[in-house]
């Protein structure tokens, strides 16, 4: 059992948990993920590690309430326990000196990109961060990202914060003005796909950190398979980072829809049982 030591709502239905997990905290590196299971009936949920506090043996995860499991996870409080918490999984991010690194993150991707830019900045890269979200309420970790970035741009679809539009609008501008050595992207698949298409034209090396459907997370099941450079790769053991220009994005987009119907059934069922916040009080 793994204790939730700290809990904060850092955006609209976006939560930051710090979990007591000494073994994971000791070994975790930027870019790796954990798989957690809330209880005996729970599914295995992959979540990127957003930070670690080694001294306190805490591992930070940030998630948005989207489906059944994340909604259920959000109902837990400080002092509650999670049944299983396995990790760190996947390859650590390849943190190297590139020069100028542009990090493009969408939604909770902000949480995932944070330890990455921290690592890149530490060894002397110049960091330009572009954070996109649907609206102001979903912009998270502003202060922390600011601290790790030389320049930080916000983009919202409705214009309630920063530039109105999508991340690639701002990326285009940055590409015109700056000599970029690496683009690192993490967030919704459609966003990463657009980023990859844009940078491919200019031959800017681009890495995408993927978060596909996973089950065991140890290479056993093949659920997270993607095609890179014409070959099948498993995001959990070969990734989660891949060259965004040789990845087959269309396939990843369609594979993400695999359980859409069942996911809806699960969420509706959960809500009907009075578990959602809007029905509580």
């Amino acid at each position: 059992m793994y204790k939730i030591v700290k809990k904060n709502e850092i955006g609209l239905r976006v939560h930051s948990y710090e979990i007591y997990a000494p073994e994971v905290a000791k070994s975790a590196k930027a870019g790796q993920f954990v798989i957690l299971r809330i209880d005996d009936k729970g599914e295995r949920i992959p979540l990127t590690i957003s930070g670690v506090s080694c001294q306190e043996s805490l591992v930070r995860i940030i998630f948005q309430e989207i489906g059944k499991s994340t909604s259920q996870l959000a109902l837990l409080n400080e002092g509650d326990y999670i049944k299983d918490f396995a990790g760190p999984l996947g390859h650590p991010a390849e943190v190297k000196k590139y020069g100028t690194v542009v990090a493009v993150a969408g939604g909770v991707g902000a949480a995932e990109v944070l330890p990455i830019i921290k690592g890149f900045k530490k060894i002397g890269n110049k960091i330009v961060t572009i954070l996109g979200a649907r609206n102001k309420d979903l912009i998270i970790l502003e202060d922390e990202l600011k601290q790790e970035s030389d320049t930080l741009f916000f983009v919202t679809n409705d214009g309630t914060y920063g530039t109105k539009g999508i991340v690639t609008d701002v990326l285009k501008d940055v590409m015109d003005k700056e000599n970029i050595n690496l683009v690192y992207t993490i967030g919704p698949i459609q966003m990463m796909k657009s980023v990859a298409e844009l940078t491919k034209g200019k031959c800017i090396k681009t890495i995408a950190s993927l978060n596909p459907i996973m089950l065991d997370g140890t290479g056993m099941c093949g659920a997270c398979r993607v095609t890179v450079d014409g070959k099948i790769k498993f995001a959990c053991v070969d990734g989660p980072e891949f060259d965004a220009h040789t990845l087959q994005w269309a396939e990843l987009v369609s594979r993400q829809n695999l359980f859409k119907n069942l996911e809806k059934i699960s969420l509706d069922n959960f809500r009907c049982n009075g578990n959602c916040k809007c029905h509580k009080n």
Partner: peptide, 24 residues
């Protein structure tokens, strides 16, 4: 650990599973 695939076209279409995934 790693499941074997056939290496033929269309193998990553939805609802094509390796037995490990289905059984797990």
């Amino acid at each position: 650990g790693l499941p074997v695939f056939l290496g033929i076209p269309g193998e990553n279409l939805n609802h094509i599973y390796c037995s490990n995934e289905f059984l797990v």
